[in-house]
Design a protein around this nucleic acid. Sequence first.
DNA 1: CAATATCATATTGTCCGACAATCGGACAGG
DNA 2: CCTGTCCGATTGTCGGACAATATGATATTG
Lengths: 252, 252
Amino acid sequence: MRPMFDPVSYAPAYLRVSEAIRTRILGRELREGQVLPTETELARQFEVNRSTVREALRKLESAGLLGRRRGGKRLIVTRPTREAVGGGLSQALTLHRARVVDVWEALQAVQPGIASAAALRRSPAALAKLSACANRFAARSGEREATVTDVADFFDALAEAGANPVFHLLNEPLLRLLKPSLAVIIDRVPQARVRIGAAQVAILAAVKARDAKRAAEWMTRHVRDFRRGYEVAGIDLATEVGEPPAVTSAIS
Amino acid sequence: MRPMFDPVSYAPAYLRVSEAIRTRILGRELREGQVLPTETELARQFEVNRSTVREALRKLESAGLLGRRRGGKRLIVTRPTREAVGGGLSQALTLHRARVVDVWEALQAVQPGIASAAALRRSPAALAKLSACANRFAARSGEREATVTDVADFFDALAEAGANPVFHLLNEPLLRLLKPSLAVIIDRVPQARVRIGAAQVAILAAVKARDAKRAAEWMTRHVRDFRRGYEVAGIDLATEVGEPPAVTSAIS
DNA sequence: CAATATCATATTGTCCGACAATCGGACAGG
DNA sequence: CCTGTCCGATTGTCGGACAATATGATATTG
C-alpha cells in the first residue's frame, strides 16, 4: 500500500548549519575568496556549539566549497577545483566498478565534441597552450609517467580551449581514470608515441584552422587508436579502473 | 626562480583519520553495507578524541562514502549515489558559471554516445523500463514539473540501458541542470511535447532494434531540437545555470 | 511458537570548557 | 628593505558530560 505519510524528516544541527552556509555560497551571497567568520563567531550566530560548527565546516570543506590559502588558518569561500571534482567523480566511478572499456567509451563520446568546441572557440592563448602541450609530448622520450601526463595535459588544454566549463570539468575524471591504462600502453606498444603525436599534430592543426569537423574526426580516430592500443598491449578491457591507493592528498 | 624546497606538508588529525578510512573503503577492505565501528571505538583505535573522529566522519559522509540506513544511527559504508555525485557536480558547475548553452553542448556530445551504447547492450528489462518512460511521457498532459521529470527519466533510463556506469553518472548532473530550462520550453513551446514524444518513440524503436547508428542519429536530432526550443522559448543561451536555491536535502 | 511489548544498554548528537600551536599583524632595529 | 620579536586571535585537539534514541535482549501475550 502506498504510505499515507512521508517519513518525518529531521536533520542534525551540523547538517542544518552546513546547508545554511552552502545556500549562501550557492546564492553568491558569500563570494569566492571571501573569508568566513571565525568558528566562534559562527557558533554564536547559529546558536550552536563550536564543535557543531566545525562538523558543518568539514562537510563544506570536503565538498570543495570552503578551503584555505596554503598555510592559511582562516577558511575562505572557494569553488570546487577541477581536481577536487574529478577526484570525487573518479572515486565514485571506482566504487561503481567502472571498467576500462566504460571510460574509453565515454571518452569516445565526449572528446570529439570537445575537439570541435575547441576548434570553434579557441583563443590565441589557448591555442598556444595546446601547441605547447603537443610540443612537450613530441620532445619527450622515455619517462613513462611524464609522457602520460603530457597526453592528459593535451586533452585538458583542448577542453580548456573549448571554453566550456562542463567539458572541462567532465574531462578531468575521465583523464584521471585513463592514465593508469595509458601508461601500460605507452610501455608496451612501441608505435604508440608516434601515433599519439601524429594525432595531436592533426588535431592541433584543425583547431588552429577553426575546422571543427576535421578536429572532431581526428579526435575520433585518436580515441579509436587507444582502443587498438589496449588490444595490442593486452589490456583486458573489462579491468576495473581504480585509482592507485594513497594517491590522495593527506600527508603525515 | 624555481623554489628549492617543496612546502612542508602537514595534515590535521581529522584529515589523516578520514584519509585512512577512505583508503580502506577505496581498497575494498571496508565493503559496502558494512557498519563502521562506533565513534568511540574509532577514537580509541586512532588514538584521537571522539570530536576529531566525528570531523573525519563528516568529511566522508559528505563525500558519499559513508551513510546510514533511514532512521539508522550507526554509519555504514556506502558508495556515492548517483544523486550525491550529480549534486556535487551540478553544484560545481553552477559555481563555475556554466551556461545553458554549455550544458546543451555537453548533452549534444554525450547523448548520442549513450544512445548507441543503449542500442548495443540494452537488456530486455532495461528496454521495458525505457518503454515505460516513453509511455509515461506520452500520457502526461499539463503538469510541467512532472513532464520535465518524465523527460529526464527517459534520458536516465537510456543511460542505464547502456550499462556503462560512466555514462550513467555523468548523465545525472547534466539532466539536473537541464531541467529548469526544459521546464520553460515545455511551458512556452506548444509543439515541444509532440516533438519530444516523437523523438522518444524513434529512439526507443532504434534501441529495440539494436540499431546503434539510428539511435545516435535520432538522439542527435532530439538534442538539436532542444536548442531550437531554447530559441523559440526565448531563453538566453548565455543564462547561467543554477539550481533553484534550497533544493537541497536538509529540513528543519 | 510467533508476534509483540518492555526494558536496559550502547551510541550518537550536542554542549561546555580548556589549552597548545601558530597565523597575522604590529612594531622595532639593523 | 629585510629581520627579529612580540601579542592577540583563531584553529586543532582534548576531556568530560548528558539527553535522546536506536539496538538488541528479554519478557509477555495470543
